[in-house]
Design a protein around this nucleic acid. Sequence first.
DNA 1: CCCCTCTTTGAGAATGGTTCCCATGTCAAC
DNA 2: GTTGACATGGGAACCATTCTCAAAGAGGGG
Lengths: 138, 138
Amino acid sequence: MTLRMTRQRAAVTELLDDIDDFRSAQQLHELLRGRGDAVGLATVYRTMQALADAGEVDVLRSADGESRYRRCRERGHHHHLVCRSCGATVELAADVVERWARQVGADYGFADIDHTAELTGICSACAARQRSAAEAAR
Amino acid sequence: MTLRMTRQRAAVTELLDDIDDFRSAQQLHELLRGRGDAVGLATVYRTMQALADAGEVDVLRSADGESRYRRCRERGHHHHLVCRSCGATVELAADVVERWARQVGADYGFADIDHTAELTGICSACAARQRSAAEAAR
DNA sequence: CCCCTCTTTGAGAATGGTTCCCATGTCAAC
DNA sequence: GTTGACATGGGAACCATTCTCAAAGAGGGG
């Protein structure tokens, strides 16, 4: 049950400190290799799963079914606003959503309500980039 | 571009009429086989994808990464409250959530905001069933 | 009603993310 | 140090989904 500190786990948590977007296990594996901190792919998967279970990282499933991980500032429950173009991520506290979930659960007699809520969009930087690209093509 | 009416597509849409929970392509395939309306698995996948693209069915990804499909009463955008135990599903209109999504998008300068929001819980029937099971075990 | 064409089907192979297996490595308590 | 439980990694296994392609069939025009 005790988590041991190994070279591999240290490398992964260090890497997570330097990254601010959601990344897949395979991307993290590549990035580690690029840094010279080679870690087996299976170990990356295991480590991310452990961190997720411990609430140390948040997991999001992308549209193509890949799990992406990110170490968030906010330790407790929160939601995300992610740019579909560059991956920039904003953490959101959303009392409205929590209240809505509780209320709806009560209305329909459901117990032990859990919820997911995620937003995606195009951040202002990417929107600007796309506008100038469109002009250049004209 | 014209969708042809085939025995297989008819069988799938008929089946969907008789089902009220979210089911995976593989489950649908099994159910069709059980009815005697044998349809190839690949065809079930293709059909469900087409129906999803056409907005005829809703898709939910379960925790283990499977896609589950359901023909909903409400044709437009809505959310779901699903029982984790029996799969019973309630369709939800949620203006609060739509407003929240739009507002947050505006606050952070994100354009073209999209959102997902789903609730899960234990429906009252399943809660009662679990209570009596617990008593029986005592 | 019959063709002919173009879509659809289905069985099995291919794909790709993730997990499992297990022999070997390594942390850390005593 | 010694030891034993935990961790690692490479490749095989898994499994949902998609692809391939030859054969079947829908349906409009004649």
